[in-house]
Design a protein around this nucleic acid. Structure first.
Length: 259
DNA sequence: ATGGTCGTGGGACGA
């Protein structure tokens, strides 16, 4: 089973490129972030017409996440638990019904800039809630994964120029510490289970020729529970997507599981 | 050295 994660940066602008990529990459499940659309305005029939079940959790203008799945989805839950007052659409999870059930969580972790400030406080609080959900997910002892745009650069080798990120919310010590606390609960960073190679990125800013200069960062991640990590066959990034017409500033990352 | 690019929605803000 192939499961992909892709921050599409707006469904309206990205629908053609997303359809092209889905048709050639053929993921069984695609976890989307930054749909920037309400549930009503999401063009679900575009994806239903090519065989996907569609579950969205959107809001007007910003954020928004969605799950596309060729296999049936059950027990869909929206919103990360832990703060009923949080109105930002950044989390959706569901069970994919294949030969064996797989719980998939699709997340768009807050950017947190500028730091320090209220946006960074929100990011850290959100990461605390993520850690709590991650713990509960481990206790089910079922294969499960949490994937998406974490807005976290885990290590210096995950940035082309780590020095320019030292005061950025994506790379501050506190951010990295919380990310590693979640990993250390027992999760596997799927890409790092496949390769230790530096210089693998999932995001290049639109500005200042970042793509041309390969000034990228690795911020989109797949975290796997032990039962899911046991099924891991491969994890790759579809870098060539960034070169195309009207690209997102992120590229897809995917895992192949023995399921 | 400086400012630089997108997306949404139809202005200002988020990234």
């Amino acid at each position: 089973m192939k499961i992909a994660s892709f921050n599409i940066n707006g469904i309206k602008a990205r629908a053609p490129a997303l359809l092209d990529w889905l048709k050639e990459a053929e993921p069984d499940v695609a976890l989307l972030q930054e749909i920037k659309s309400t549930d009503e305005n999401f063009p679900r029939s575009l994806f239903e017409d090519i065989g996907y079940n569609v579950e969205t959790h959107g809001q007007k203008g910003f954020n928004g996440v969605a799950i596309l799945s060729k296999l049936p989805l059950e027990d869909v839950r929206r919103q990360l638990p832990g703060d009923p007052a949080d109105e930002q659409a950044r989390w959706i999870e569901a069970t994919v019904i294949g030969k064996k059930a797989l719980r998939v969580c699709c997340l768009y972790l807050p950017n947190g800039n500028p730091a320090p400030g209220p946006k960074y406080d929100y990011k850290l609080a959100w990461m605390d809630r993520l850690k709590a959900r991650a713990k509960a997910l481990l206790q089910t002892e079922e294969p499960a994964l949490m994937a998406g745009d974490y807005n976290v650069i885990p290590q210096p080798e995950d940035a082309a120029n780590p020095q320019i990120w030292t005061k950025d919310a994506l790379f501050l010590p506190q951010t990295r510490k919380k990310f590693h606390e979640i990993l250390n609960l027992g999760y596997t960073d799927a890409l790092r289970a496949i390769t230790q190679e530096p210089g693998i990125y999932t995001f290049w800013d639109y500005q200042a020729g970042a793509w041309k200069k390969n000034n990228g960062i690795r911020i989109d991640h797949f975290l796997l529970t032990p039962q899911c990590a046991d099924l891991l066959l491969d994890c790759q990034i579809d870098k060539e997507v960034r070169e195309r017409e009207k690209p997102s500033d992120h590229v897809p990352i995917w895992v192949e599981l023995d399921l």
